[in-house]
Simulated assay, not measured.
Amino acid sequence: MSDLEARTDALEVRLAYQDQVIEDLNQTVIAQWKLIDSLRRQLNELLDRVQEVEDNAGGPSAPEAPPPHY
């Protein structure tokens, strides 16, 4: 019975470590998703600001033609 108890104890220890690793990975993934969401919001805000500046620039929307001497 001693061998069986030792194997059971080893499996329980291994399971405990795996549970901790899974929890650590889960927390890492949660933190990364929060960062991704924050970066997406910032990117959307910047895109909105760039679009607003372009709309208010008042210049021609098409690129300028090259000067006649080209």
Rank of each mutant, 00 (worst) to 15 (best):
24 D>Y: 02
24 D>G: 05
45 E>L: 08
10 A>M: 01
48 D>V: 07
7 R>D: 05
30 I>T: 11
65 A>H: 05
5 E>R: 09
25 L>Q: 13
60 P>S: 12
9 D>Y: 02
64 E>D: 15
28 T>C: 11
29 V>W: 01
20 Q>I: 04
57 A>P: 00
65 A>F: 01
8 T>Y: 02
9 D>Q: 13
3 D>C: 02
63 P>A: 06
14 R>M: 04
62 A>C: 07
37 D>V: 08
2 S>P: 00
65 A>L: 05
23 E>S: 15
6 A>D: 09
32 Q>K: 09
8 T>Q: 07
47 L>V: 07
67 P>W: 02
18 Q>W: 04
62 A>I: 07
33 W>E: 12
10 A>D: 04
17 Y>D: 11
49 R>E: 03
2 S>Y: 00
37 D>P: 00
26 N>V: 05
17 Y>G: 02
18 Q>E: 12
36 I>D: 06
46 L>K: 11
13 V>P: 00
63 P>E: 06
49 R>T: 03
54 E>T: 07
59 G>W: 04
61 S>H: 08
30 I>R: 10
35 L>C: 07
22 I>E: 12
39 L>A: 15
6 A>S: 07
26 N>K: 15
21 V>A: 15
54 E>H: 09
30 I>D: 09
63 P>R: 11
3 D>W: 01
11 L>M: 06
39 L>K: 15
38 S>W: 01
3 D>Y: 02
4 L>I: 05
